[in-house]
Design a protein around this nucleic acid. Sequence first.
DNA 1: TTAATATTCAATATAATTATTGAATATAAG
DNA 2: CTTATATTCAATAATTATATTGAATATTAA
Lengths: 218, 218
Amino acid sequence: MDKRTFKNKVYSELAGVVKAMSNPHRLEILELLAQGEYSVEGIADQTDLEIANASQHLQVLKRAQLVETRKEGTFVYYYLADQSVYKAWKSLRDLGMERIAEVERIVQSFRESKQGVESVSSKELAKRMQNKDVIVIDVRPEQEYKAGHIAGALNLPVEELKKELKNLSLDSEIVAYCRGPFCVFADEAVQMLAREGFTARRLHDGYPDWLLDGLPVE
Amino acid sequence: MDKRTFKNKVYSELAGVVKAMSNPHRLEILELLAQGEYSVEGIADQTDLEIANASQHLQVLKRAQLVETRKEGTFVYYYLADQSVYKAWKSLRDLGMERIAEVERIVQSFRESKQGVESVSSKELAKRMQNKDVIVIDVRPEQEYKAGHIAGALNLPVEELKKELKNLSLDSEIVAYCRGPFCVFADEAVQMLAREGFTARRLHDGYPDWLLDGLPVE
DNA sequence: TTAATATTCAATATAATTATTGAATATAAG
DNA sequence: CTTATATTCAATAATTATATTGAATATTAA
């Protein structure tokens, strides 16, 4: 095998993996699966895709070995093949957030409608949690919470949070988190809490980032 | 802006960046530009592309804000926009090398023709260099060496290395490095050195990885 | 000004990607 | 066995990506 053949083969294989990630729906699916496994129907639901379409995107990811499957009855559950898949997605996400002004602009203009939502880093939250002067709430769907969550966090998706407001202490700061920096559940929760007189912020990143940082989970 | 519109916009922007990376030639170009700036002609040369084709690929990378340009006379020099671009490429490369058996297989079957080429990690090399019991040679083209290299390394591309063999001490181990794990110059150098009776290994990764690790450069 | 060179542009043909639709398959429950 | 449900498959049309070719543009040198 000569040099050029070798390079062509290697870079084609790698480009194949990148191609599998080069679609907006598939990126959203990867971020979703980083929360835990989901059935095809669940994925279609969460990403607003037709089932047949979601299935096809999932097969592209599977062919690229980015996800794997598990069968249970008529359900097929998809999950990330490896933590290195999340690492790669995260570094692409970071690249986009750092370099692409348009990403920043979109996030900003969405956040404007959720005025005054401030965020806190994983590092800072971990420190605050040691002093126990913060309530951490996981606003993702129960299924994702059950698949893994920040140690000590309460699962209170927005609907449940509404009912629990009267049981929450007004003395502690509340930090809400969800799937990642583009997840909007946390913004909604923080906004609602602020209206009710609580001091609340969102975790800047999400659960998978916390996990990757080796911080305590359950 | 509703949730779905927001997500569609953000993921589409990010997918745009990933799409720009989802081509074998463009990945090879990114790895090349991580060594330092290159003109269109230089890039076409190094990657065996037609000039017009290289130019078009470069414009895709530029539109995605992954590279930037500088003009000098009739030459247009392209360079990586940011170190986060290299980080993203590196994490994709790592993902491929870890997860995709086919990548491993191609590398293996190429290395077989260069039997017995062993590699050393950046960490180990950095330690050995402190003890000064190793000669480090940079086998990349002079242009890349000049744009930046491992502190203390000699620039000896394979042709120059042949002439310098008699001036190299047989007592020290020699470590050759080049662009990255897929760069073949280092394998050729190590193989030649081994034939001449030297103890030689290649650096597993390349110069850009050394730089990213914050190790000493010139 | 003219010639030479580096790069980009424009047009084209071929191939690949995508969403949609409806049918096919497989499993579980009645 | 029949029915219901989850998923995949197959076919299609529309869009996008790619390499090639030759022309156009811009800069330098003669």
